[in-house]
Design a protein around this nucleic acid. Sequence first.
DNA 1: TAACGAAACGTTATAAAATAACGCGCATGT
DNA 2: ACATGCGCGTTATTTTATAACGTTTCGTTA
Lengths: 151, 151
Amino acid sequence: MTEQEIAAVLERAEHLCRGRGARLTQQRRTVLRLLCASDKPLSAYELLDRMRGCIKNPAPPTVYRALDFLLEHGLVHKLESLHAFVGCAHPEHTHAGQFLICSDCGDVSELEDSAVAKSLQAAGKAAGFRMTRPVVELIGTCAHCDGGKQT
Amino acid sequence: MTEQEIAAVLERAEHLCRGRGARLTQQRRTVLRLLCASDKPLSAYELLDRMRGCIKNPAPPTVYRALDFLLEHGLVHKLESLHAFVGCAHPEHTHAGQFLICSDCGDVSELEDSAVAKSLQAAGKAAGFRMTRPVVELIGTCAHCDGGKQT
DNA sequence: TAACGAAACGTTATAAAATAACGCGCATGT
DNA sequence: ACATGCGCGTTATTTTATAACGTTTCGTTA
């Protein structure tokens, strides 16, 4: 994300939290900013390393607490298959996103494909299942890495 | 799974491995059997505990190696969001299954919903993404636990 | 059948990811 | 001012997963 995009995300996050009576503290803001600034998902411990610049003596609970808050408020996503986190590209949206994870270059892109969302919803409903959190991570090779090798 | 179902799974696994020139060793068979016999997903370490009955001094690599083999051959699935494993209900199928995970009772059921599979395939294709492994885990409340509380 | 090479396994150690538990301090409202 | 709850610091521990290296087992081929 560019500096400007990050600023916009922080702005939106601020607004969203204010509206909910939630406190976007310095550390939480820092974690969100670091995630947005990274071009790759970050593990909690990578995040921890990067926090050393801004915060004095961060320990694991510091980063996990911030992540818990941000996850609750839909500002970041956890990629379960990578044990890593990314800033949410669409914080206003519904949080039924899907992730394309390139196992070659490590790039991740977030989709909000309504056909996928609907089919998942339908499949759950058919089983009488009330869905609270869909985890959809497609692991494979991105267009760039696949480059011309495949039709 | 019932004893008979487990026997059938082991039989199929045997056959499948033979056909591929892969060796379904005693330990691998044991891990597969234990997973099938459990009514819940098992973590690697729970599995390790249960192996103590059958195998002398199992250490983590023992169970992880068996799991790697079984995963490669599509005989078990890993539930990324739970750090746990289940026996595959449909070892003959395509391995694009979806999982419904009840966060209330812990029960997991495996689907093979073709509408979901197709929409995922389509979404990936639209992004030029070549998918090798879909991770689809729907977290929520199963019909039983939701029991009457919801329309 | 003896020798070989690959695959499977035993073992010890360590890395990586996540949480428990406890107390302090600060902001918020009464 | 005071009480309450939330956020945070800190230490320790638990849980999950892998590295590294030597030994054994198995199937193949000479």
